[in-house]
């Protein structure tokens, strides 16, 4: 019997999804439905990926403030993407099928993330402030290098990269979407089987090792999973800085539990719900004025502050 609160969130998500599909449906119904369904699938995928990645990263860093975005994971992905366009040239990059370029970027991303973040987590584990500082510096560094490489590019290549850099659900590539679904399903299965181990890991490295976990190997696997999840969300829509922090806090305050069996699905579903609702507001109410990121970060930030002020988030 799944938790009641999870059923409520899932129900709300399904309602939002249905609303997204059928609101203002007229004219070539099937054509529009197909377009909307692709967009919806991307939104849900990104939501699940961001929610899961954030909870996993907070478990690893033993900290409730840090998220993969704050630590510069998505900036790293964009740097890799830019580097790839730069190295292959605009023409070479365009010749890669979207599926191939996604696979290539994801694999490089996993390698780079594991290499960098395993070292950072190891060095700064005792010192949260240092960890935040390192993360902020790294994020800035990745963004600056990206900006520098973009200066060196010719304008057509630059346009190509820029398309990938901002949150946009308008033009989702179906090849990358299918790959994302497969990746998400794989990671979901792995997490489903290991959720109890994650509960122990959340006690911190020393405690987890004392209880008999091979912590460092698990940390490696989890960093891989986080890198893959960030790749999914960033490849599909670009960076959404604040969403992860928001949904992880909401999931914690709603579930009031340390169990990942509850926290992971809650965060994933809440993130998907916020994205779908945000897109409805953005498309239908704001008539595509402003951007989805602005809608989400504004309303999400407001919600976060209200909950914080009422003492509902700890």
């Amino acid at each position: 019997m799944p938790d009641k609160r999870l059923i409520w969130i899932a129900g709300a998500l399904l309602a939002a999804m249905a609303l997204f599909l059928i609101w203002g449906l007229q004219g070539k119904v099937w054509f529009i439905l197909e377009l909307r369904a692709t967009k919806l699938a991307a939104l849900v995928c990104v939501g699940l990926a961001i929610g899961t990645a954030t909870v996993l990263f907070q478990t690893l860093s033993n900290n409730r403030i840090l998220t993969p975005s704050i630590m510069g994971f998505d900036a790293l992905f964009i740097l890799l993407q830019t580097g790839l366009v730069f190295a292959l040239g605009g023409f070479g990059y365009a010749q890669l099928s979207p599926l191939r370029s996604f696979a290539l970027e994801t694999i490089v991303m996993m390698g780079a993330a594991v290499f960098l973040f395993a070292a950072i987590l190891h060095r700064t584990r005792q010192d949260v402030q240092l960890m935040i500082l390192v993360g902020v510096v790294m994020g800035l560094m990745f963004r600056s290098i990206t900006a520098f490489v973009q200066r060196l590019m010719d304008p057509s290549e630059f346009t190509m990269v820029q398309g990938a850099m901002f949150a946009r659900f308008g033009a989702v590539d179906s090849g990358a979407l299918v790959a994302s679904v497969v990746l998400l399903a794989g990671i979901g299965l792995w997490l489903w089987r290991h959720h109890a181990i994650l509960d122990v890991m959340a006690l911190g490295r020393a405690q987890a090792r004392g209880l008999g976990l091979a912590y460092d190997r698990l940390q490696f696997q989890m960093l891989c999973a986080i890198a893959a999840l960030v790749s999914v969300s960033t490849a599909l829509v670009g960076p959404l800085t604040f969403l992860g922090l928001l949904v992880a806090s909401l999931a914690h305050s709603l579930m009031q539990s340390h169990r990942h069996q509850l926290l992971l699905p809650a965060a994933a579903l809440i993130a998907a719900l916020i994205l779908v609702t945000g897109q409805i507001v953005f498309e239908r109410i704001l008539q595509l004025q402003s951007t989805l990121a602005v809608v989400i970060e504004f309303s999400g930030g407001l919600l976060f502050l209200i909950l914080l002020a009422r003492g509902r988030i700890r």
Binding site: Q58, N63, A202, L203, G204, A206, Q207, G210
Partner: peptide
């Protein structure tokens, strides 16, 4: 083992 640094980030 019980160490000196005892903190858990999640609500337990």
């Amino acid at each position: 083992v019980v160490g000196q640094q005892l903190g858990v980030a999640s609500r337990i």
